[in-house]
Measured scan of single mutants.
Amino acid sequence: EVTIKANLIFANGSTQTAEFKGTFEKATSEAYAYADTSKKDNGEYTVDVADKGYTLNIKFAG
């Protein structure tokens, strides 16, 4: 089991951190699914992958 950390960075400057656990593939998939659901309210996003994929910096356009 691994933990994927997602740092969500919103257009207004606020941030949120979420953690997803499971296999690398499952946790990563859940992090992207979470970003997709947040996209409806926060606009399109880009992802900067860090820490060999264990940290995702997800920046929303607003």
Rank of each mutant, 00 (worst) to 15 (best):
E1K: 09
E1S: 11
E1A: 10
E1V: 14
E1L: 14
E1W: 15
V2L: 06
V2S: 05
V2E: 05
V2F: 06
T3C: 12
T3N: 05
T3K: 07
T3E: 04
T3G: 03
T3M: 08
T3P: 02
I4K: 00
I4Y: 01
I4S: 00
I4R: 00
I4H: 01
I4C: 02
I4Q: 01
K5E: 04
K5N: 06
K5G: 03
K5P: 00
K5V: 15
K5Y: 10
A6D: 00
A6Y: 02
A6I: 15
N7S: 06
N7P: 01
N7I: 15
N7F: 12
N7K: 09
N7D: 02
L8A: 02
L8H: 01
I9A: 06
I9D: 03
I9M: 11
I9F: 15
I9C: 10
I9G: 03
F10S: 03
F10V: 02
F10C: 05
F10A: 02
F10K: 03
F10W: 08
A11V: 09
A11N: 07
A11Y: 08
A11T: 08
N12G: 07
N12R: 04
N12V: 04
N12S: 08
N12H: 06
N12D: 14
G13V: 03
G13S: 05
G13D: 04
G13F: 05
S14L: 13
S14M: 14
S14I: 13
S14K: 14
S14A: 13
S14W: 13
S14N: 12
T15I: 15
T15L: 10
T15M: 13
T15F: 11
T15E: 07
T15P: 05
T15C: 13
Q16T: 12
Q16W: 12
Q16E: 14
T17S: 12
T17Q: 10
A18S: 09
A18G: 05
A18R: 15
E19M: 13
E19K: 08
E19R: 08
F20E: 00
F20Y: 05
F20D: 00
F20W: 05
K21Y: 13
K21S: 11
K21N: 08
K21M: 09
K21G: 05
K21T: 14
K21P: 03
K21R: 14
G22P: 00
G22Y: 02
G22T: 01
G22M: 02
G22F: 03
T23I: 07
T23L: 08
T23R: 06
T23S: 11
T23A: 07
T23V: 07
T23G: 06
T23K: 06
F24S: 03
F24Y: 12
F24K: 08
F24L: 10
F24V: 07
E25D: 12
E25Q: 11
E25W: 09
E25M: 10
E25K: 09
K26R: 12
K26L: 10
K26F: 12
K26G: 11
K26V: 11
A27G: 04
A27V: 04
T28R: 09
T28Q: 09
T28W: 10
T28A: 06
S29P: 02
S29N: 11
S29D: 09
S29H: 11
E30C: 13
E30H: 07
E30Y: 08
E30L: 14
E30I: 06
A31M: 03
A31L: 05
A31F: 02
A31I: 06
A31H: 01
Y32N: 02
Y32R: 06
Y32F: 12
Y32S: 02
A33H: 10
A33K: 12
A33D: 08
Y34S: 03
Y34W: 15
Y34C: 06
A35W: 02
A35S: 04
A35M: 07
A35E: 01
A35Q: 01
D36C: 10
D36P: 01
D36V: 06
T37P: 03
T37I: 15
T37R: 15
T37F: 14
S38H: 15
S38D: 04
S38K: 15
S38I: 15
S38P: 02
S38L: 15
S38C: 15
S38M: 15
K39R: 12
K39M: 11
K39W: 06
K39T: 10
K40R: 12
K40C: 12
K40Q: 12
K40S: 10
K40Y: 10
K40E: 11
D41W: 14
D41K: 12
D41N: 11
D41Q: 12
D41A: 13
N42C: 12
N42Q: 11
N42R: 09
N42M: 10
G43N: 04
G43W: 05
G43E: 07
G43K: 03
G43A: 04
G43H: 04
E44V: 09
E44I: 09
E44S: 12
E44T: 10
Y45Q: 01
Y45T: 01
Y45W: 08
Y45I: 02
T46F: 08
T46K: 08
T46M: 08
T46N: 07
T46L: 07
V47W: 04
V47S: 04
V47F: 04
V47G: 01
D48H: 12
D48M: 12
D48Y: 13
D48G: 08
D48Q: 13
D48T: 14
V49P: 06
V49M: 08
V49F: 10
A50R: 12
A50K: 11
A50Y: 10
A50F: 11
D51E: 07
D51G: 05
D51T: 02
K52D: 15
K52C: 15
K52Q: 14
K52A: 14
K52V: 06
K52I: 06
K52L: 13
G53S: 03
G53E: 03
G53P: 03
G53Y: 02
G53H: 02
G53M: 03
G53W: 03
Y54D: 02
Y54M: 11
Y54Q: 06
T55V: 10
T55M: 06
T55S: 05
T55D: 02
L56I: 09
L56H: 02
L56P: 00
L56F: 05
L56G: 00
N57M: 07
N57I: 14
I58Y: 11
I58A: 02
I58R: 00
K59T: 14
K59R: 14
K59W: 14
K59F: 15
K59Y: 15
K59L: 12
K59A: 08
F60D: 01
F60N: 00
F60M: 02
F60S: 00
A61H: 14
A61G: 13
A61I: 13
A61V: 13
A61L: 14
A61S: 14
G62S: 10
G62A: 10
G62E: 08
G62T: 09
G62F: 09
